[in-house]
Simulated scan of single mutants.
Amino acid sequence: MQAVTDTINHLADTANHAVQQLATAPPQELRFGDLILKGGWVMLPIGILAVLGLVIFFERYFTIRKAAKNESQLMQQVRGSVLSGNLDSAIAICRNSNTPLGRMLQKGLLRIGRPIKDIEGAVENIGKLEVSKLEKNIGILGIIAGIAPMLGFLGTIAGVIKIFFDISQSGDISIGNISGGLYVKMVTSAAGLFVGMIAYICYHILNMMVDKVILKLETDAIEFIDLLEEPSK
């Protein structure tokens, strides 16, 4: 009996010591990197969408910004050459500018001699082509803004299904078991929403920039057509 009593006391001391260690242990920190890794396979496509969206945004941003630069000097040079009758010089100036406005004006200058409606139509068509070039791949950002949150929700739902499947197998329905797995699976929803919001914002920023370029090109096109009509007034 004494041996049994000693064993019980030893086990009780061990249990008390373990409880004290758990009580004095520092709380576990919630680290961002650990959450990303625990998010599961869904984090991989969400990460790919995030990288793709950033690449498209910065590439389009600098392209559109370059197209939106002030071309007042180009218009003045073209106006001076046209009014002086030196069309070859005006065409060369437009060609060397290598800008959307320069290509529009060059097309119009090459149509001089035809009815003004034909010149206006040619300039308009080139303008539409240049705008479509600026809008290239912007639509992909809109797709990312819609797909990323859905991928996040898919990851969360898949995780919840697995949690309840494990519970059905083990019979352990403790709140710790449920919440411990659920908070990890919610990471995919948060990541998907975050990527989707960033893509949505970037999409509209680029569209606003393109709208400003369109307005500027239309204004310059009207000024160019008025310039061609001046001698005949």
Results as ranks from 00 to 15, higher is better:
Val4Thr: 06
Asp6Gln: 11
His10Gly: 12
His10Pro: 06
Asp13Arg: 08
Asp13Val: 12
Thr14Lys: 13
Ala15Gln: 13
Ala15Tyr: 11
His17Tyr: 10
Val19Thr: 12
Thr24Ser: 15
Pro27Tyr: 08
Pro27Ala: 13
Gln28Ala: 11
Gln28Met: 10
Glu29Gly: 12
Phe32Gln: 12
Gly33Glu: 15
Asp34Val: 09
Leu37Met: 15
Gly40Leu: 08
Val42Ser: 07
Met43Cys: 08
Val51Ser: 12
Leu52Gly: 02
Gly53Leu: 03
Leu54Thr: 10
Phe58Gly: 04
Thr63Asn: 07
Ile64Pro: 01
Ala68Met: 13
Lys69Glu: 11
Ser72Asn: 05
Leu74Gln: 09
Gln76Pro: 01
Val78Glu: 02
Gly80Leu: 14
Leu83Cys: 03
Ser84Glu: 09
Asn86Val: 06
Leu87Pro: 05
Asp88Tyr: 07
Ser89Met: 07
Ala90Tyr: 03
Ala90Ile: 05
Cys94Arg: 04
Arg95Asp: 14
Asn98Gly: 07
Asn98Leu: 09
Gly102Leu: 02
Met104Val: 02
Leu105Val: 05
Gln106Asp: 04
Gly108Asp: 02
Leu110Ile: 05
Arg111Phe: 13
Ile112Asn: 08
Arg114Gly: 13
Arg114Lys: 14
Ile116Arg: 05
Asp118Asn: 09
Val123His: 00
Glu124Arg: 11
Asn125Met: 10
Gly127Glu: 01
Gly127Gln: 05
Leu129Glu: 12
Val131Thr: 07
Val131Asp: 03
Val131Arg: 07
Ser132Thr: 06
Ser132Pro: 04
Lys136Ala: 15
Ile140His: 10
Ile143Ala: 13
Gly146Cys: 03
Met150His: 10
Leu151Met: 05
Leu154Ala: 12
Leu154Arg: 13
Gly155Thr: 03
Thr156Glu: 03
Ala158Gln: 01
Val160Phe: 15
Val160Asp: 07
Lys162Asp: 15
Asp166Val: 00
Ser168Leu: 05
Ser168Gly: 15
Ser170Pro: 00
Ser170Asp: 02
Asp172Thr: 06
Ile173Asp: 10
Ser174Val: 06
Ile175Gln: 12
Ile178Val: 15
Ile178Lys: 07
Ser179Gly: 09
Ser189Asn: 02
Leu193Pro: 01
Phe194Pro: 08
Val195Leu: 02
Ile198Gln: 08
Ile198Phe: 09
Tyr200Lys: 08
Cys202Pro: 04
Tyr203Glu: 04
His204Asp: 09
Ile214Pro: 02
Leu215Pro: 02
Lys216Gln: 13
Glu218Met: 11
Ala221His: 09
Ala221Val: 07
Asp226Leu: 10
Leu227Asp: 08
Leu228Met: 11
Glu230Ala: 00
Pro231Thr: 08
Lys233Ala: 01
